[in-house]
Design a protein around this nucleic acid. Sequence first.
DNA 1: TTACCACTTGGAGCAAACTCCAGCGCAAGC
DNA 2: GCTTGCGCTGGAGTTTGCTCCAAGTGGTAA
Lengths: 129, 129
Amino acid sequence: MTISEVSERFGISQDTLRYYERIGLIDAVPKKSGRRDYGERELDRISFILCMRSAGLPIEVLLEYIDLSRQGDKTAEARRNILIEQRERVQEKIKEMQEACKKLDYKIDVYYTKMLSKEKEIMKATKDS
Amino acid sequence: MTISEVSERFGISQDTLRYYERIGLIDAVPKKSGRRDYGERELDRISFILCMRSAGLPIEVLLEYIDLSRQGDKTAEARRNILIEQRERVQEKIKEMQEACKKLDYKIDVYYTKMLSKEKEIMKATKDS
DNA sequence: TTACCACTTGGAGCAAACTCCAGCGCAAGC
DNA sequence: GCTTGCGCTGGAGTTTGCTCCAAGTGGTAA
């Protein structure tokens, strides 16, 4: 799979894909006549990274996790602990966002009521005149 | 209320408070002998901003919203529309994060199973020897 | 053969949101 | 009156995560 296909498929830029490879988030992608040729292995990695990034995990943390992965089975527990910590963070963030969402809901509703009452005023004014 | 008290109360730095004021997210805070003296009005604003920021609303958007607020009632609908759009964004983000959380759960569980089976192996090896 | 195109590299640049700093001012307490 | 502490300002610096660019290469099509 070419870089443009991967870029299209995941909706991220080619630059970002190369950037991830450069910093070691993706292992060196095999090349065909100088061009990257992404395989299943790479696609899986990319999909994992994007999922985690979308949840807000910092690149630093993903790097650490992937570095540990490369060191084999003996790091399984450390990796698990990273995931557990990150899950906690994500859950906390979700809660915060739900709070904010409630506040937004409330405010939106207040504006709605405001507009309704304004409309009534106009109706009344129209009738009066 | 002094800036250090506000900083403490909301868990944000004094620098950030001054920064928010500088860019107009908070209106000029009244001063007592050259020092900021935060009142209820300011605290409410700060609490709103922090809530929205924690949900990921960009400062740009908050600035726009607050600018509209300053222009009075005639901007009510525009403001409401901003809130509606942002609520959509937040909800989408929450969904993404919940997806990621699921993936994390799954992975954590996989590591757990892995560790269990490793433990078993050790038990067996111990027994065999 | 030449033109074109997608792709390569290393490095610079950028946007957002802070964060830090130097140098100053004021007010209280010793 | 002097020091200590808190706060002030304007401006520079930092971090994160990309994004853009110039110059070069290799395969393909006219």
